[in-house]
Nucleic acid binder design. Structure first.
Lengths: 209, 209
DNA sequence: GTTGCGATCTTGTCAGTGTAAAAATAATTG
DNA sequence: CAATTATTTTTACACTGACAAGATCGCAAC
């Protein structure tokens, strides 16, 4: 069980430590050794579980995608009847996630920090894709997909719609996170998001008709 | 003049070295000491010109914004008569810049790496803003602004239009850069960009009417 | 059981990093 | 030419990621 050696659940303890450090000190203060210190293990302990620092960051990012999906579904769940409200919920969840976990958000979209095959992405990313895709599919009145099914099963029009919506929402969240929208007064932000998602929702519905 | 001490133009030499390292080794291999080595000076020489590593990265990023603006204007210049072609040129320039200078693009939008006051951004960022803003103003048939004038001189509708367009284009370029759009076949990318910018162009024109 | 083996963790080490302080050298100013 | 300032080097330090070798533990096979 739990002895001096053999922590028992060191991997998750290290990931929790990583989250905590990212939230408090940011990516600057984030080091493998700092994670090890916070988990009360030696500096080389993480190596066995994650290989190198990119391995650690990859798993941190995947837990980030898990949180993002949870937030997305949480915000959409009460408004499943209203298509525009769904799209708005996606935008809202996205922006709020970026604000709550800024460093996680950055890491999740840093190809150079993540070590997974971009051609066959891990489960968490597939689930994120599927969640966003299903919003579009509901708009179009088409059957939803599970995260197991590949995007290849979708026709070109759907894919275009997905990435049109996603680009818009992602770009807004990203620019906002990085301080490029500071000239916008705070109360205007929600209005912009509302209008943008309204337009996206309309466009996707109209295209499907 | 040029002696063993007193390089003469060390600052620019270091920035050139920084560009070269970013293009060849990426942000991972980018260190102050590596830049110093490439410029044939001691490892502490950059300190006097840039303070710390964020100071160096900030100036690297500003030169990146210069290049981005140059590319934007270069692509728009032949199509100033066609509004949609202008918007498409913006999207194209943005995507091409991200592809040609991926690490610069990342750094330019990393608040944690840049040390400037986000409330009063440096000239290069103001010029970028102004360039994008003027595209929208031309769509609306309103007089253009110079980079000296603040965004505060614009009404709320214009600001919404700007950031709607920018979010879309930026998000697309960013997701593409970070490998999140790899499921899209290569030849489809330009079509999506074309359709998206067409819609943005239409929306902004219609709103102005 | 106990023997062995693989998984897990520690210790020690190495080259490399950013930053600071002090010294050395050059350019500029008076 | 003297003094001051700007630029660069040298030296030093604490820290990092990675590696190798060893210590300890869990567990399966016998």
């Amino acid at each position: 069980m739990k002895t001096a050696y053999h922590h028992g659940d060191l991997k998750n303890a290290l990931l929790d430590a990583a989250d905590e450090i990212l939230l408090s000190k940011g990516l600057q203060g984030f080091t493998m050794r700092a994670c090890a210190r916070l988990a009360n293990v030696s500096h080389a302990a993480p190596k066995h579980h994650f290989g190198d620092i990119n391995g650690l960051l990859t798993e941190v990012a995947m837990r980030g995608f898990d949180r993002l999906v949870a937030l997305l579904q949480n915000k959409m769940q009460p408004v499943m009847g209203d298509l525009h409200a769904q799209m708005y919920a996606v935008g809202l969840a996205y922006v709020e996630f970026a604000e709550a976990y800024p460093e996680h958000f950055r890491i999740m979209f840093r190809k150079d920090l993540l070590s997974y095959d971009t051609q066959s992405p891990p489960r968490q990313i597939a689930v994120t894709y599927a969640t966003l895709t299903n919003v579009v599919l509901r708009h179009r009145g088409e059957p939803e997909i599970s995260e197991i099914e590949s995007m290849a099963s979708l026709n070109g029009e759907v894919i275009k719609d997905i990435f049109m919506c996603w680009s818009n929402i992602h770009g807004y969240a990203h620019l906002r996170l990085e301080g490029q929208l500071n000239s916008i007064p705070e109360e205007t932000h929600l209005k912009i998001l509302q209008e943008n998602t309204q337009r996206l929702s309309d466009l996707v519905q109209r295209r499907a008709a």
